[in-house]
């Protein structure tokens, strides 16, 4: 049985302009021990997926459709009590901004201890032992546990959050851009920690990032999201032989991935308005290969076993890949 199934998830935010469809029919599956990478540009709805899974959508947001199942149980059908019991014990989070993820007026240790206490009876001494052990694991000095969050650097806080996510030995860890706001060196260390947890402890993981390279290095399967929708979903092939023009664009931004030594090419334009998204393919306004057909919703096409793409023109993928390597292709469209 899969560990986590997300099926046709729809999340909307109430805004002044109307309902924003931040996540619109997203599906994927995480098997035990697997790391799934979720990539996409800023604002495409990655954190919204994470928040929906953890049940911490802000008051303006709500799940408008679809299902999230953990070990076969639908989270939507659970009582608040059942839900609370499974939180953090089954699914834990390493949030996007560890900077503000810790309560400033409590010590780091007490915030880890609180997570334990909420789920299991454990004597204080053993709790402390467990926390020290985890601090060791993520590369923090155990005596620093009694410090307050402001006494930690950004990297230390992120490590503390990783320790906190591990504290109940959850089945699944959701890591939402765990390295934003950190300097490059620390980013690397944190990512290595996370990979370690995954490799050594066999933790299942949902790794969210906008960085194709991070996903390529760490993930078993990859979901590429754009404007609330899944564009491409599959294994390594997603970055080795991408089919979708958007994935091609994302890979371009990290040239050493597929093709070496080329100037960084970024996708021109901005994501569409989510309150009134365009009919048809959401990427059409920025897609260099768009045709008249793209005005209708593209079908999900299985291009290889376990590799699906939402594009009308998957048959031309070979040509797209060649042209995508040419910076001219990504010039601001004339129209």
């Amino acid at each position: 049985m899969p560990l986590l199934e997300v099926e046709n998830l729809e999340v909307r935010y109430r805004t002044q302009a109307g309902e924003a469809k931040a996540v619109d029919g997203v599906s994927f599956v995480i098997e035990p021990g697997m790391c799934l990478g979720l990539v996409g540009e800023s604002g495409c709805g990655k954190s919204t997926v994470a928040k929906a899974i953890l049940g911490i959508l802000p008051p303006a947001g709500h799940i408008a459709g679809g299902a999230i199942r953990y070990a076969g149980r639908d989270l939507g059908g659970m009582t608040p009590r059942e839900l609370r019991a499974m939180r953090w014990r089954d699914i834990a989070l390493v949030p996007q901004s560890a900077m503000n993820a810790l309560d400033p007026v409590y010590t780091v240790e007490s915030q880890l201890a609180e997570a334990i206490a909420a789920h299991q009876a454990m004597p204080a001494a053993r709790r402390r032992g467990r926390i020290a052990e985890l601090f060791e694991l993520v590369g923090l000095e155990p005596d620093r546990a009694r410090d307050y969050p402001h006494q930690f650097s950004g990297g230390m806080r992120q490590r503390a959050m990783i320790a906190m996510a591990m504290v109940l030995d959850p089945g699944l860890i959701v890591a939402d851009e765990p390295t934003t706001g950190l300097d490059v060196l620390v980013q690397d260390q944190i990512l290595r920690r996370i990979r370690d947890l995954h490799d050594r402890l066999g933790k299942a993981m949902l790794l969210i990032t906008h960085d194709m390279a991070v996903v390529a290095e760490n993930s078993d399967r990859i979901v590429v999201m754009y404007a609330g929708r899944v564009m491409e979903y599959g294994g390594e092939a997603v970055f080795r032989t991408p089919y979708h023009p958007y994935t091609l664009g994302l890979c371009n931004a990290f040239p050493d991935l597929a093709y070496r030594a080329r100037a960084l090419i970024s996708i021109p334009g901005t994501p569409p308005n989510l309150v009134a998204p365009p009919e048809g393919c959401r990427f059409q306004a920025r897609c260099p290969f768009a045709t008249a057909r793209c005005g209708t919703p593209p079908p999900l096409i299985e291009v290889a076993p376990g590799h699906v793409v939402a594009c009308h023109h998957v048959d031309q993928a070979e040509r797209f890949r060649e042209r995508a390597a040419d910076p001219e292709t990504w010039r601001e469209p004339a129209r």
């Binding site: 609370r84 014990r89 900077m99």
Partner: peptide, 25 residues
């Protein structure tokens, strides 16, 4: 709206515990 409140909620703390955290701040 602070991030740490989301985390407290994700940790499965009962509502009143979260309210205590928020009030202390």
């Amino acid at each position: 709206g602070a991030d740490f409140i989301d985390i407290l909620r994700a940790k499965g703390l009962p509502e009143w515990r979260i309210l205590v955290h928020a009030t202390r701040n």
